[in-house]
Computed example of a mutant assay.
Amino acid sequence: MQEISDRSTSAPADRPSGTRARVLEDLRNAIISGAHPPGTPLSEGALAEAYGASRTPVREALKQLQVEGLVEIRARVGTFVRQPSRREVVELFQIKEMLEGLGARLLARRGSVPELDLLRHNIAASEAAVASGDADRYAHLVHEFHDLILQGADNTRLLAHYRQLMNQLAYHRLVISSLRRPGRPGASLGEHRTVVERIAEKDGFGAELAMRDHVRASERGVMADPAPGGPGEDDERKDT
């Protein structure tokens, strides 16, 4: 999981491409992390001041984030953090299930690799977080767990597609939403343990099934939560 960048906002004026990249990355991370919740208006002027940049790189960053599905630019109205519809979330979770299932299977085939040790450390830290009721810490460890699975698959294209999908889902918000359900953190941790056990056993088929089961359980938790930050209404319902 990537944290919100705290790099200096004083990028050299003669490196506009660097400024564009910095503004894009920092704004993307702020949206994904929930610092800018769904529906939040995004002012070019205010963002330019916050990031120590001109309006041009901010405008270009917002256009790119619209392409990625994170913001919505409404002509003559403004720019807002986008809330995906329930249908979109379901469809993205279907893709997530396939990508992460494949990642677990590929990792299991690799045997004893550094990512497996890191996953075991993640499980131990997660047990402590769940036992202490530290939901924020556990949410961070959930991100780390899933990213380690895809890193360990050792497939650069798979990892790139996965991380793009996580951005489109604004997954941090959905994890927090899912973990609000009573008993979900403990159940999630148990599912993580099963995935790691299958990977350690070099059971590629079992690892894939365990990961896909886990993703479906996570999806059920997200879709059951009507709280702000969860998925929005279906597009069809908005038109009625």
Score class of each variant (00 low, 15 high):
Ser5Met: 05
Asp6Phe: 10
Ser8Asn: 11
Ala13Asn: 08
Gly18Pro: 05
Ala21Tyr: 03
Arg22Lys: 12
Arg22Trp: 11
Leu27Arg: 10
Arg28Asp: 11
Asn29His: 09
Ala30Met: 14
His36Ile: 01
His36Cys: 09
Ala46Glu: 14
Leu47Phe: 00
Ala48Lys: 06
Ala53Ser: 15
Arg55Ser: 07
Val58Asn: 02
Glu60Arg: 15
Leu62Ala: 01
Leu62Phe: 04
Leu70Lys: 04
Glu72Tyr: 00
Arg74Lys: 14
Val77Arg: 13
Phe80Leu: 01
Arg87Ser: 12
Glu88Arg: 09
Val89Ser: 00
Phe93Tyr: 14
Gln94Trp: 03
Gly103Ala: 03
Ala108Cys: 10
Asp117Gly: 15
Ile123Gly: 03
Ala125Tyr: 09
Val130Tyr: 11
Asp136Pro: 07
Arg137Asp: 10
His140Tyr: 12
Leu141Ser: 09
Ile149Thr: 04
Ala153Glu: 02
Gln168Gly: 05
Gln168Leu: 07
Tyr171Ser: 08
Tyr171Phe: 15
Leu174Asp: 02
Leu174Arg: 07
Gly186Asn: 09
Val195Arg: 08
Ala207Phe: 05
Ala207Tyr: 07
Leu209Gln: 15
Leu209Val: 15
Met211Asp: 03
His214Lys: 08
Val215Cys: 00
Val215Met: 14
Arg216Val: 05
Ala217Pro: 03
Glu219Trp: 06
Glu219Ser: 10
Gly221Cys: 13
Met223Val: 14
Ala224Ser: 14
Ala227Pro: 01
Pro231Ile: 12
Glu233Cys: 06
Asp235Ile: 10
